[in-house]
């Protein structure tokens, strides 16, 4: 891609990456994402193509799989979200996946359609409990688990990245500021205002 002088804007107007003992908030602005929806009856071919290209097995249950520099989030029956860092090379997952899945799946760029934050730290579950009605206890929800749910009336996709624990939450971009208001309100008890 040529060098554009057009500046990219964070989906979050005010929310910034911040580290606290209880909770770390990271705004993930530099991601490239794409929706994948298998063509009718072609899911096995889609899986084989992804296996061949990235060495990972696409999940058929609400789970996340990671390959080298890429993750796939289950997004519905025969649907996934591919997600990777955009980086200095301006990686574009849509462009990358289209030839891999040509004729067997629809690939739609979502790099800007979703706002994503990563939340981690010892009190992250207590914060999420204030808006997410999902049992995130390690007995019920494990690393790489995925939930399509809502946070404080905002539709989200949530997945657990590691046992730190760290979670990533994706929402429609336009909701980012409402989500941030809820998040800072809910986290205030642990990290102050």
């Amino acid at each position: 891609m040529a060098k554009s002088t057009l500046a990219a804007q964070s989906a979050f107007t005010d929310l910034k990456t911040s580290k606290h003992a209880a909770l770390t908030i990271e705004v993930l602005d530099d991601l490239t994402m794409a929706s994948i929806a298998s063509s009718k009856g072609r899911a096995e071919e889609v899986k084989a193509a992804i296996r061949a290209a990235y060495g990972v097995e696409l999940p058929t249950t609400p789970e996340r799989v990671t390959g080298k520099g890429i993750a796939f989030i289950w997004h519905g029956p025969d649907q996934w979200m591919a997600i990777a860092d955009r980086g200095a090379g301006m990686r574009d997952i849509e462009v990358e996946l289209k030839p891999v899945l040509a004729g067997i799946a629809a690939v739609v760029d979502q790099s800007d359609g979703r706002a994503v934050v990563r939340l981690s730290g010892p009190r992250v579950r207590d914060v999420l409990a204030k808006g997410v009605g999902i049992d995130l206890d390690p007995r019920a929800f494990k690393s790489n688990g995925v939930a399509i749910t809502h946070a404080s009336h905002i539709g989200i996709v949530l997945w657990q990245v590691n046992d730190a624990p760290a979670y990533e939450i994706a929402m429609f971009r336009s909701f980012a500021d409402s989500f941030a208001t809820w998040l800072t309100h809910s986290a205030a008890e642990f990290i102050g205002h």
């Binding site: 891609m1 040529a2 060098k3 554009s4 002088t5 057009l6 500046a7 990219a8 804007q9 964070s10 989906a11 602005d29 760029d109 790099s111 800007d112 359609g113 971009r173």
Partner: peptide, 30 residues
Amino acid sequence: CGGIKARLFRLSFSGERAFEIGVPARYGDS
């Protein structure tokens, strides 16, 4: 603007000569 992927539609709701131009949302403000 120097290589940002975009979509152009020649549509008019106003009745004037008009376009709709779409860019990835992170560039919308700029």
